[in-house]
Design a protein around this nucleic acid. Structure first.
Lengths: 176, 176
DNA sequence: ACGTATTGATCAGCATGCTGATTATCAGTA
DNA sequence: TACTGATAATCAGCATGCTGATCAATACGT
């Protein structure tokens, strides 16, 4: 913010008052995280829409996870892709609405709902995959291949260390 | 999930069934972006609440930007911190509600609202800064100092390349 | 000066993502 | 068996974050 005026009139007479102790956004990992995520979502939606589909990143992740784990219940699904459990309800609702999933009571536990992907869901997933892959490449387009790999490594490492700090930590699926 | 085994042992004896075409989340920069952002927000809120305040990351960023740029209008503010312009309305509403900002019509352009931080806003910003700094460190706690710096560099680079891809790109403030 | 295009702010509507509560069900124990 | 605690799903409520529309005001070209 002040940095900008610094750049504009490049005055070295820069007063380090209390105001200036607020670090520039570019030095805040939290801000960078928000911006990168913002761009990632925009790129994902643009690519998917260009391919003729209407799926959000979250819906895609849920659909893919359910395809990989037929009959999974919602809590396990949430842990698998690190969502909040209350968010899952709405996401699954919308996927069911679109006919990509079916949800029915578990015979083993009447509290739980088992999730199954439909044929339409499988077709959608299959058809959408190239767009999703393109989006993943596009959001790293400013980086070399090496840098992209390093960014992912560092993100994975930071995430692993902070996993338990959010309400929706990643939880490996247990066989039931 | 299965691509990983490919990368790890780079065995060509890998069946490319349809299921396997869905890459593992950990190989998806979009997923990693969401997880890191999720943790960053949780850490921010926890630190700020522990310090006795009730401010979201977005509210903090807006407040800090307004303090740095008194009298800024909402569109310029949005560009400065890369928000969507429609999101700003609600954020500013809540900051005004809390008494941390005042919003009044600009004499130069009656469409625009000039934003000013209040004394209470300044006090809040001053008091909250240690918690914000702590949060920024905490979200990188799994990384060495060098790795943290590299992560930020790579994020900045990727963001710069993707800046125009979101609806809310960063826009340097112009002097008016 | 006039008509048109643009711009600042807001709104309706929708989808995450969270906190905290509730309901139904299950599991373990006295 | 009856009680107690835990668990799966959902809900209300709130804050981002987006699309697309509207309204008032400004800027611009002729």
């Amino acid at each position: 913010m002040l940095i900008i005026s610094m750049l504009v009139n490049s005055k070295p007479a820069f007063e380090f008052t209390l105001e200036n102790l607020v670090r520039d956004n570019n030095e805040m990992p939290g801000h960078l995280a928000r911006r990168f995520q913002q761009i990632a979502v925009a790129v994902f939606l643009a690519e998917v829409e260009a391919a003729g589909f209407d799926l959000t990143p979250v819906q895609y992740a849920a659909l893919a996870a359910i395809k990989m784990n037929p009959g999974i219940d919602q809590v396990t699904l949430a842990g698998l892709i690190a969502y909040d459990r209350t968010t899952i309800t709405g996401v699954v609702d919308r996927l069911v609405q679109k006919g990509l999933l079916v949800r029915h009571a578990s015979p083993r536990d009447r509290r739980a709902r088992e999730l199954q992907i439909t044929e339409a869901g499988k077709r959608t997933l299959r058809a959408i995959t190239p767009a999703v892959e393109a989006a993943q490449r596009l959001m790293l387009r400013g980086l070399t291949e090496k840098e992209g790999a390093e960014l992912m490594r560092l993100l994975r490492k930071a995430i692993a260390a902070g996993n338990e700090l959010s309400r929706a930590p990643l939880r490996a699926a247990e066989l039931r």
